[in-house]
Simulated scan of single mutants.
Amino acid sequence: MYAILSTIVMILELYKWVLIAMIIMSWLFTFNVINARNQFVAMVWRVLDALTEPVLRPIRNLLPSMGGMDLSPIIVFIIIFFLQSFIAQDLPRLIGLY
């Protein structure tokens, strides 16, 4: 059971890195540092968008408009932090691993 919990924590950690990559890439698009017409860049963006948009879209729908600022990744980071803390500290005690 501990291996399953550790794997879930690792998947959440990887997802944080995917979110960070998506945020950085969106900034690079905004400031015209990278070209969206580049085939490799477009492919990476499609993958990142496919991985993050299903999680971010419902949160964006709940948050009020912030004038162009997207705060949904911050909410996702907070949720991931909570889940990682819960899995690492509280859940093992609840199911009797400690």
Rank of each mutant, 00 (worst) to 15 (best):
Y2R: 14
I4M: 12
S6T: 07
T7A: 12
V9E: 12
L14Q: 12
L14H: 13
L14Y: 15
Y15D: 00
K16W: 01
K16S: 10
W17T: 10
V18D: 02
L19C: 01
L19W: 00
I20Y: 04
I23D: 11
I24H: 01
M25H: 03
M25S: 09
M25V: 03
S26C: 01
W27L: 09
W27G: 09
L28Y: 05
L28E: 08
F31H: 11
N32E: 15
N35E: 11
N35A: 02
F40P: 00
M43L: 08
M43A: 14
V44H: 00
V44I: 12
V44C: 12
R46K: 14
R46S: 14
V47C: 04
L51A: 14
L51T: 05
T52C: 11
P54W: 01
P54V: 00
R57F: 06
R57L: 13
R57V: 09
P58R: 05
P58C: 05
R60K: 08
N61P: 00
L63Q: 07
S65P: 05
G67P: 08
G67Y: 03
G67N: 09
G68T: 05
G68N: 10
G68L: 03
G68I: 03
G68V: 08
D70Y: 00
D70R: 02
L71S: 04
L71F: 14
V76P: 01
F77T: 04
I78N: 05
I79K: 08
I79H: 02
I80Y: 02
I80E: 01
F81N: 15
F81V: 08
F82G: 11
L83V: 08
Q84K: 15
Q84A: 13
Q84Y: 06
F86V: 07
F86W: 15
I87R: 07
A88H: 08
P92F: 07
R93D: 12
I95K: 07
I95S: 11
I95F: 07
I95T: 12
I95L: 10
G96K: 03
